[in-house]
Amino acid sequence: MKVMVPVKRVVDANVKVRVKPDNTGVDLTNVKMAVNPFCEIAIEEAVRLTEAGLATEVVAVAVGTSACQEQLRTCLALGADRAVLIETDEDVQPLGIAKALKALQDKENADIVIFGKQSIDGDNSQTGQMFAALAGMPQGTFASEVTPEDGKLKVTREIDGGLQTISVSLPAVITTDLRLNEPRYASLPNIMKAKKKPLDTMSAADLGVDVAPTVEVVSVEPPEERQAGVKVETVDELVDKLRNEAKVIT
């Protein structure tokens, strides 16, 4: 059974991002980049399927600039068997990525494709779903538990106010929620082994796919700065402020 895991290179979750002065986007100069945290969970889940003897090959895929090789190497160190970079300098968006991945899937014929449920930069939560539609595959999104069962996947989904368990036939798309697993650290011996694992590069054009953006970002604004709080001296003053300033009581 083959598992494909698309991963995204994003700003490190620990970085406090700054909006560019001209409001066209987030300033990425000298900013530390990392594997999108939900994609790390996806890789971990795929590697666990291999370790459990259920999967035979894990392929990590990225769509983006050549810099994405860094994140693909991390995935190889975490246990992926090989990696594919679909290289493009376009500002890729979910639909373009989904199309490129669909073209790759036509060659790879993976049985399970595991996505992160969303990336922490775009927050779109669209790529997995779009891919499933393009590929005509069933999808188990926001998964907190995935169990192979009788040639199908039993997927527990995190939904508003509870859990939903579904069964999907293979080949299938999974998108990972936070609670699915806790990703391991990359060990030094595995990082060194990863250097020798295959990382193939192809262009979007090689796959015959147009990944040009279709959505134009008009403006990016930082959140409004919160006003500093004030300390009140008495309960009466607090009640007065709640009533007359905040107007939350009458």
């Binding site: 490190d12 530390k32 990392a34 990359a186 060990s187 030094l188």
Partner: peptide, 26 residues
């Protein structure tokens, strides 16, 4: 990484992990 390999070859170290992001470093 080279020092790590030397430490393993010398029998001082058996395994190691490396942060892949600032989040992991934390």
């Amino acid at each position: 990484t080279a020092v790590f390999e030397h430490c393993v070859a010398s029998g001082w170290v058996v395994d190691a992990v490396l942060s892949q992001s600032d989040t992991q470093a934390g």
